[in-house]
Design a protein around this nucleic acid. Structure first.
Lengths: 155, 155
DNA sequence: TTTTTACCAAGTAATATACTTGGTTTTATA
DNA sequence: TATAAAACCAAGTATATTACTTGGTAAAAA
């Protein structure tokens, strides 16, 4: 998987868009100023976000970008995937030089962990983050994913 | 934050070590063969893992590496941090050109999300992954972190 | 004393990141 | 209708990171 600064830029920009709310479209120049990201780099990120149907762009004066979906329907995973692409690796699929089993086992375990991280990020929406910002400071984000306790895993 | 292929290599190698269990130390040459990672690159990764007290190396014939702690006491976050270093960004700390508030808000929201991801990975241990491997296939990993439901966040 | 291993340092090639330059459309508005 | 503001697009470049290479030294078992 990947999840580095590029995805962070995208999430930060999308958050900016979400916080701006319904005050008309927000220009990339504004986001560039707000977040300290170069305009052209934002253009590239937003080309990806647009192609994935996460934002809509309006040309001409008074134009800009706004979210193409409700904030509750946009997950962090979606945003990161749009710009970073979530790679599934080690698809050794049992054949080839994986006869020992050991290799395949670590691979499949990593793949599970990878998709678990995906699920985690997929269950946090932009709306969650925004709501979090408009409330008091001492709460934490939630993970409302598969409700499995640690006891269900131990032994 | 960062969490790219380098961290994946480290986690995969540590998993290999964990699965190997108590059958004496495992050589980097073995891991290199098992996981398809270059020996010298592994050496670099293990130098970091060793300096963080996650593994111990034994020199000479019959030597190799073994885990320096119990698998239940080694979290995925620890492993990734050892090789990838977890960066805290956007420490604009309220001053400078953050008067608008908007910028600081997105920054602090991202920082919260970042530490939430850290907590998530910090609550998954090597033991969890290994146990997962020795059981049947249809279970999922658990996140036994802060038990907050989504309802506690919504409005 | 030979071999096997960890350990170490200084490189390099390939790739990804973040940015730059120089455009073209579209569209509101003066 | 001309101008300017914006999205949109393509092709570059500098920097940093990733993954690997080379060529060692040090420790310890046989």
């Amino acid at each position: 998987m990947r999840l580095s600064t590029k995805g962070r830029y995208a999430v930060t920009a999308m958050l900016d868009l979400a916080l701006h709310g319904d005050n008309g479209p927000l220009t990339l120049a504004d986001i560039s100023l707000n977040q300290g990201i170069s305009l052209s780099y934002l253009e590239q990120l937003f080309a990806a976000l647009r192609s994935k149907g996460l934002v809509r762009g309006i040309r001409g004066p008074g134009g800009g970008y706004f979210l193409a979906k409700k904030t509750k329907d946009i997950s962090i995973a979606e945003i990161i995937c749009a710009v970073d692409e979530w790679v599934e690796f080690t698809r050794c699929a049992g054949r080839e030089n994986c006869q020992s089993g050991q290799r395949c086992l670590t691979h499949s375990l990593w793949n599970e962990l990878s998709s678990e991280i995906f699920d985690f990020l997929d269950h946090i929406s932009l709306a969650n983050l925004v709501e979090r910002g408009t409330q008091n400071q001492n709460q934490h984000l939630s993970y409302s994913g598969s409700q499995i306790t640690s006891s269900s895993m131990a032994a």
